[in-house]
Amino acid sequence: MNAAAEVALKPAPRRSRGARLLENRNVLSALFLLPSAAILLVFLTYPLGLGVWLGFTDTRIGRPGIFIGLENYEILWHDHVFWLSVFNTILYTVAASVLKFALGLWLALILNEKLPFKAFFRAIVLLPWVVPTVLSAIAFWWIYDAQFSIISYSLIKLGIIDTPINFLGDPTLARASVIAANVWRGIPFVAITLLAGLQTISPSLYEAATLDGAGSWQRFRHVTLPMLTPIIAVVMTFSVLFTFTDFQLIYVLTRGGPVNATHLMATLSFQRAIPGGHLGEGAAIAVAMIPFLLAAILFSYFGMQRRRWQQGGRD
C-alpha cells in the first residue's frame, strides 16, 4: 500500500476551534485585510479626520484649540486673499491642464510616428518627469530670475528687449511663469500615457480608414480621438488632481507672491497654518479644496465609465 492511500484511509483528526476558524473564508479574508486596513487607517483616515477636525477649531501652534464650529469658514468667506487663492487655483489648474493636454497629445502623436532615434526622444521626453520637482523648480527660479534670467539675457542679446523681464515680480507674468513651469513638468506624464494609448490602436484601423477615404485629419478625428477617449479621461483626471493640489513648484518659485497673485489654496493653507501658526484656519482652507477635488473625481467617474462600445459580450 502506498503512502497516499494510507493517508486517505486515516480518519480525519479533530481539529481545534482555532484551526477551524482559520479555515473560514470570512475570518481568513478579514485577517489578510487587517494590515492594509491598519495602514489606511493610521496614515490616511486619521490625518484626514484630524485635518477636518482642526478646521472646526481655533488651534494654534503650541496651544490646543477648542471647537468653534464654522467660525473659520465664516472668516474665510469674507477673506479676499482666500478667494484670490481659489481663483488662482482654478486658473492655474484649467490653464495648465489644457496646455498639458494639448502639448502632451501633440508630442505623443509625433512620438508615435516613424522617426529616427525614437527611443532616444522618448527618453528625453520623460526627463522633466524624472527630475525631482524641487530641483526643476530651482532651475526655473534661475530661468525666471529678475537679473540673471537666461530668457531675458537671450532676448536682450537678440535686441528684442532692452531691460530684463521681471518674470516673478509682475502678477500677470508671475502667474504665466508658474503655469509654464507646471506645464513643462506635467507634459511627460500626459505625453507618455497618451503614447501608450496610441500604441494600442491597431494600425489596420488606420489602413482601413485610409481605404475608406479618410484623410489624416479625418483619421485623427474618427479613429484616434474616439479610441483614445478612455485613456484621456484617466490621464486628465490625474493631471487635474495633481495640478489642483500643487504646492512644491509655487513654494519654491514665488511663495505665493507677488501680492498673493500666485497663491494657490495649498500654499495659502500651508502659509496660514505653519509660518502663520493658525493651524485651524490652514486646515479649513485645505478642507475647502475637498469639494473641488470631489467634483473632479465625480466628473472623471462619469467620464471614465466604460463606453458602450468597450463592453464585451452580447446585449
Binding site: 491597431s202 489596420s204 484601423l205 489602413e207 482601413a208 480608414a209 474618427h222 479610441m227 463606453r307 462600445w309
Partner: peptide, 10 residues
C-alpha cells in the same frame, strides 16, 4: 483585413 479592422467605437 485579416483582423477585420472594424472600428470598435462604431
Amino acid at each position: 483585413f485579416q483582423n477585420y479592422a472594424l472600428y470598435p467605437h462604431m
